[in-house]
Simulated assay, not measured.
Amino acid sequence: MSGAPDEPRGAEDRDGADLRFVEPLPGLGGHTRFRLTPIPGVPGLHALRAVTDDGDGPRLFVADAPALRLGYEPDLPAFACELLGGGDASSLRVLVVLHPADEDGPLTANLFAPIVVDPATGAALQVLLEGSPWPLRLPLIDEGGAS
């Protein structure tokens, strides 16, 4: 994965990184090209937007797994490494999809289906961690509003 969550990860984090998903993200219209752009002032938080001709593709918010400070280090299946070019799992960047807080509940993190990225190539894949204990929606803010 990476170092401390507050450490810069290089130019790709300051300016954004282009990602190419080897399989489309579910529910996002079949898009495979996305731009990962850091959110200023919030280390480890990013917008992930589909690259489209009109520039208005679907968007998700994601966080670098270490930035969540949850001790989240999923065991990635071997097929994920193979689909991303055969590299070692320790060299892959793990992103967690966030679900914004709304009237139905708090901000949550999807630990069951992380996005895995090969930083060297920009190849990406969302992986379902079947049989894992990681939840689909882990609340990041407790009932009292504290994180």
Rank of each mutant, 00 (worst) to 15 (best):
P135L: 04
P5K: 08
R93K: 11
D104L: 10
L36W: 01
P139E: 00
S91L: 06
L28A: 08
P38H: 03
D104R: 13
N110Y: 05
L83E: 14
P38E: 10
V42R: 14
V94R: 00
V127Y: 00
H99C: 11
R35H: 15
D53Q: 10
E143V: 05
L45C: 03
G16H: 05
P38Q: 10
S91R: 14
D15G: 06
P133K: 13
L83K: 12
N110F: 04
R33W: 03
L138H: 12
G30F: 10
G71P: 08
V51P: 12
T32D: 06
L107M: 14
G16N: 03
C81M: 13
P58V: 05
P58I: 03
A67F: 03
T52D: 06
F21T: 01
L83V: 10
G10P: 05
P40W: 05
E73G: 15
E12F: 15
P119L: 02
L60K: 00
E130F: 08
L19F: 02
S2I: 15
L70Y: 01
L68Y: 03
R137S: 09
G57E: 02
G30R: 09
P43Q: 10
R33F: 09
G122R: 04
L129R: 02
R59F: 07
G55W: 05
P8T: 12
L98C: 05
P133I: 14
W134A: 05
R9Y: 09
T32V: 15
L107W: 13
P114A: 02
P24M: 01
L95K: 00
L125Q: 01
A4H: 14
L68P: 07
G29P: 12
G145Q: 06
G57I: 02
V127D: 01
P5L: 04
A4I: 10
R14G: 13
P135V: 00
P74C: 06
V51F: 07
V127G: 00
P24N: 02
G86M: 08
G85T: 04
R69V: 13
V22L: 01
L128R: 11
P5H: 14
A124L: 02
G131Q: 09
V94Q: 00
F61Q: 13
F112Q: 14
E82M: 06
D104Q: 13
L111D: 02
D64Q: 13
D104W: 08
M1Q: 12
P43W: 03
P133Y: 11
E23K: 08
A113D: 04
A50G: 08
D142F: 07
G71S: 10
R137K: 15
R20I: 02
P43T: 04
C81H: 04
A67T: 03
L92K: 01
R93T: 07
D13F: 03
G122S: 10
P66S: 03
G41A: 15
L111A: 02
G3D: 10
N110M: 05
G71T: 04
V22Q: 00
V94Y: 00
D54T: 07
L83M: 15
L98Q: 03
P119N: 02
G122A: 09
G44L: 04
V22C: 01
P114R: 00
A123D: 12
L95R: 07
A65H: 04
